[in-house]
Amino acid sequence: MRYKIGYKEEKRNQLLKITGQVAKKAGFQNTGIDDFMKAAGVTSGAFYSHFSSKHELFKALIHNELEQSIQMWQTNPFDDPEQWIDFELERYLSLSHVEKSEYGCLLPALATEVARSDEEIKQHYQAELLRGHQIFVKYLGSEKQAWAVMCQLVGAILMARSVLDENIKLIIIESSKNMIKNYLSY
């Protein structure tokens, strides 16, 4: 059977999207290939036509997910640093981001799994993370401030996800927004 040009790449991208959603919700290491492929509506055999191993899937997932974050940061409609960071604070530190991890950022969902991974995964993750960091440096004007803000954003989402009470979630989100604005003197 012949497929049209681009079919395999399109299917791979669909698998990465669905795998990313499942991994961010249930955890990458906790989810087997069969479960990923079932969520994608394909057979486990189809997995091997796109990835050589679960390790390769994780690398591709990291790249794909961080690329999406980078594209979002790059398409922020503001050039003014204060407006840029305000837009990102509102977009990132939201209750929907807290409650719908499968549609959110990879960083709070899978950073601990990356930390437990081998050196190759960590190097790949670091390279992608540094690309995103440079966007924050561009708008914040400082490497240290960029790291501090990125860590606060990710940590706030992680902390808000770890509590049940919606009021506490909102306090975590809003206090983090205020802390970042005060830190940056906006």
Rank of each mutant, 00 (worst) to 15 (best):
D118F: 00
F47Y: 00
L15F: 05
L106I: 15
Q145V: 02
Y48Q: 02
K17Q: 11
S69W: 11
W84F: 06
A26G: 05
S53W: 00
F28A: 09
S176P: 15
R2D: 10
H124I: 02
A127P: 00
G20R: 01
K181V: 06
W147N: 08
G132W: 05
I172M: 06
W84Y: 10
I121R: 04
A111E: 10
N13K: 11
I168R: 10
S69H: 13
N178F: 13
I33S: 01
Q145I: 07
Y103H: 15
Y3D: 01
L15W: 00
L129Q: 13
L107A: 15
L106W: 13
S175H: 06
I173T: 01
E67R: 07
S185E: 14
S53G: 06
Y48E: 02
L129E: 09
L57I: 10
I5F: 01
K17Y: 15
L110R: 08
A160G: 06
S142V: 14
D35N: 13
Q126D: 11
A23E: 00
D165C: 05
G41T: 02
Y183H: 03
I121G: 10
L95S: 08
K11I: 09
M179S: 08
S175P: 13
E128D: 07
E166Q: 11
K4C: 10
H55N: 13
T31Q: 09
I135T: 12
H63A: 09
I62C: 12
H55D: 13
F87M: 03
A160E: 11
G27L: 05
R116L: 15
H50W: 01
D86Q: 09
S53E: 08
D118S: 11
M37F: 00
T43E: 01
E65T: 12
A109D: 05
S175C: 14
N76H: 07
E128A: 12
L107M: 14
Q134C: 07
T75E: 13
Q21E: 12
G20C: 11
E174H: 04
S94M: 04
D118K: 02
I157P: 08
L140T: 07
I157K: 07
Y48W: 00
S117M: 07
N64F: 12
V137Y: 14
A46T: 02
Q126C: 14
R131W: 14
E9C: 05
K122T: 08
K54G: 03
I18C: 03
K54Y: 06
R116K: 14
P77Q: 03
L89P: 02
S142A: 14
F58R: 05
L110F: 06
K144W: 12
M37L: 01
Y186G: 04
V149D: 09
I172Q: 01
V154A: 14
T31N: 03
T75D: 08
L107T: 09
Y3K: 02
S176N: 11
Q83G: 05
A39I: 00
S185Q: 15
S101A: 15
W147V: 03
Y7A: 10
S162N: 08
Q29E: 14
M37S: 00
N13H: 07
I121T: 11
L15M: 09
I33M: 03
S69C: 10
G104V: 12
K8R: 08
W147P: 01
K181H: 11
E99K: 15
F51Q: 04
V42F: 01
W73G: 04
F58P: 10
N182Y: 00
